[in-house]
Amino acid sequence: MPKLIFRLFLSFVLFVSVFILIQNSLTPDSFGKYGHYRADAIDDNKISTSYYKGEENCTTCHEDIFDLKFNDLHSGVNCESCHSPKINASVECEVMPPVIEGTLKLCAQCHETNYARIKIVPQLNFKEHEEGRNCIECHNPHAPWELKE
């Protein structure tokens, strides 16, 4: 048997064995448990912080506002739809109320006239309707049909 083929064979066997050894040591342990992926990644995806807490959380302190909202047209709108949670790790729940100048922009998100918007949502042309004034000067956002004037 030619030395040639013998030595090549040997190098090949060596290479394959070393490769398989390396493969087994470098593949993460949980790999392949449920499929071709690292099963621990499922738990990794569960770890993230949740910022949105849900309406029930708000009512623990703000039940009066919740009751007001419940009886008016914004009952279907969650607290956090308008009051997005501000990220503050030191506080259990800190809510960021829309800044006074901003109510126009905020309310327009849903209520600006748009042909594509369903008619159940009252829509108006914000420029024409009391132009420049903030919505909350007349409307209570938690009970929008209770006008202040």
């Binding site: 030395k3 040639l4 030595r7 090549l8």
Partner: peptide, 18 residues
């Protein structure tokens, strides 16, 4: 050469075939 130092006809033919 991996230590395979033959230069004769037979080895040349083997190299060729392989």
């Amino acid at each position: 050469t991996l230590g395979i130092n033959e230069t004769d006809e037979k080895s040349a033919k083997l190299d060729d075939k392989l």
